[in-house]
Structures are given as structure tokens and as C-alpha cells.
């Protein structure tokens, strides 16, 4: 009998990877999160997380860090991406590369370099832990915000802007009523790529001697002391936050996506 090769079979390697490294570990995490030391099902770990002012404080601190980082990234990245995408500079691509280039350099190396610069400027880094953390985070995540915004704005046909102007819109109105709403998918994916990693990236905090915990540091400390149950709980909480925000952002960009699919047919 002839062996019939189907395209579906190409997915087998990924399916194996998915089961081994995503689904199984997830099940293990869920198992640990909802059991106690003796293996009984229990919600105690969750209740304990929300009962402790220390852990809730960590959650809030993480959110503050992540939201601040995201907002600053957005404020810097949007105008940058707009200029790169919409100005007829011949070196536009080269400039974009300049902004994205840090992504090619090892993260630890980058953050160490930044640490040296900050030390040079401030002397003692421990004086401004929050500020330094934000600077480090923004520095680290900026390219992840610029890229999706650039992609969204570059795809935005100039004729939309011209049409808006033609209908009587001033430059400000063109931006507010056409450019901004049409770049929402880019904003959403940029925010997704910055907000959630910023909640867990404790390496930045370590580097700038910020001793306050964020969610990532908490998981790290639990796991390194073999407390699988509490570590898993925090992972699940983060997972829920990611899940909810993805659902929200999907809903926000759904109209746009449907439109694209419609055009393909």
C-alpha cells in the first residue's frame, strides 16, 4: 500500500512538543496549585495568597511596575513608530533597525550595561529603586512596543488619512478619528507584549538592587525553596491575568480581524 502523506502530519513534531513541554507541565502546575502537602485537593493555597498582605502587596507592586512601564513605552513608541512608518525618510528601515537592534543583544548584557550607565549618573543605585526599575524595564521592552506599532502604522493606507482630510478633518482630527482607531490592533499587541512580561521580569529588579518583590521574584523564591504549591498558585494567578487580558484584547480587535478574513474570501 502506498503511503499517503498528508499535510496534517507536518504538525506532529509540534504536537509532541506541545504535549511534553506545555500541556503536561501545565497539568503539573495545576495539580500542585490545588493540592496540599499530602496530595488532598485544597484551595488553601489560593486563600493564603489573598489573605497575606505581603503577597497581595507584591501583586499590586507588580501591576504598578508593569502598567507604568507599558504606558511609558507606549508614549515613546507611538510617535517613534509613526515617524518611522509615515515619513518619507529613505533611511526609515535603517532607523527602525536601530531601534530594534537591542533585541539582538543578550538581555543580561544589555541590562548590565544600563546598570553601569545608571551608576555613573546616580552614584548609588539603591537611592531610586522604583525609578531605576522603570528605566530598566522601558529600556528592555521598548522594541517590543515599537515593532507591532510600526507594523500596524505601515500597513495603514495613506488614502485613509487623505480621505479624512478631504472630508474636512484637521491634522488633529485625522489622528484622533482615523489613525489612532485604526492602529488599535498594534497598540493591543504591543501592550500584550510588554505588560505581562513586565510583571515577572525580576532580573531587572535584581540588577538595579530593587529588593522589592514582584510576581516573578515570588515564584522564583518559592520554587528555589522547593515550595511547589505556592509557586504554582502564583503561576496560575498570572495565567488567569494573561487569559483575561487576551480575551479582552481579542474582543477589542475582533471587528478588524473579521474584516480581514472577509476580504480573503
Amino acid at each position: 500500500m502506498k503511503y499517503a502523506f498528508s499535510r496534517k502530519q507536518l504538525a506532529i513534531p509540534y504536537a509532541i512538543f506541545l504535549v511534553l513541554f506545555v500541556i503536561l507541565p501545565l497539568l503539573v502546575v495545576i495539580f500542585y496549585a490545588f493540592t496540599d502537602g499530602e496530595g488532598h485537593v485544597s484551595f488553601h493555597n489560593f486563600l493564603a495568597f489573598f489573605a497575606s498582605s505581603k503577597t497581595v502587596g507584591t501583586l499590586l507592586y507588580s501591576i504598578v511596575i508593569a502598567v507604568t512601564t507599558t504606558l511609558i513605552c507606549l508614549l515613546i513608541a507611538y510617535p517613534t513608530a509613526y515617524v518611522l512608518a509615515k515619513t518619507n525618510i529613505r533611511s526609515g528601515d535603517a532607523l527602525l533597525l536601530l531601534f530594534v537592534l537591542p533585541m539582538w543583544i543578550n538581555f543580561t548584557l544589555r541590562i548590565t550595561a544600563l546598570k553601569e550607565i545608571l551608576t555613573l549618573l546616580e552614584g548609588n543605585l539603591a537611592m531610586h529603586p522604583f525609578l531605576n526599575t522603570i528605566v530598566g524595564m522601558v529600556y528592555d521592552f521598548l522594541p517590543f512596543m515599537i515593532l507591532p506599532l510600526y507594523n500596524a502604522l505601515v500597513k495603514l493606507d495613506d488614502s485613509y488619512m487623505e480621505a479624512a482630510q478631504d472630508l474636512g478633518a484637521s491634522r488633529r482630527h485625522v489622528f484622533l478619528k482615523v489613525v489612532l482607531p485604526l492602529s488599535v490592533p498594534g497598540i493591543v499587541s504591543g501592550v500584550t507584549m510588554v505588560l505581562l512580561p513586565a510583571m515577572t521580569n525580576y532580573v531587572v529588579l535584581d540588577m538595579v538592587y530593587n529588593s522589592t518583590y514582584i510576581m516573578g521574584s515570588l515564584i522564583g523564591s518559592y520554587f528555589s525553596s522547593y515550595d511547589w504549591h505556592n509557586g504554582s498558585v502564583i503561576s496560575i494567578i498570572l495565567l488567569i491575568i494573561i487569559g483575561v487580558s487576551t480575551l479582552l484584547s481579542n474582543r477589542y480587535t475582533q471587528g478588524e480581524e473579521n474584516g480581514r478574513v472577509g476580504n480573503l474570501r
Binding site: 488614502s159 485613509y160 487623505e162 480621505a163 479624512a164 478631504d166 482607531p181 485604526l182 488599535v184 471587528g255
Partner: peptide
């Protein structure tokens, strides 16, 4: 006081 009908219409998709 002039309005244009663009080649690819440029209707706002949002």
C-alpha cells in the same frame, strides 16, 4: 470646498 472619491474608495474600515 472640494471632495474626492478615491481610487480604492478609502472607506474607513473601523
Amino acid at each position: 470646498p472640494i471632495n474626492t472619491v478615491f481610487q480604492k474608495y478609502a472607506l474607513f474600515p473601523h
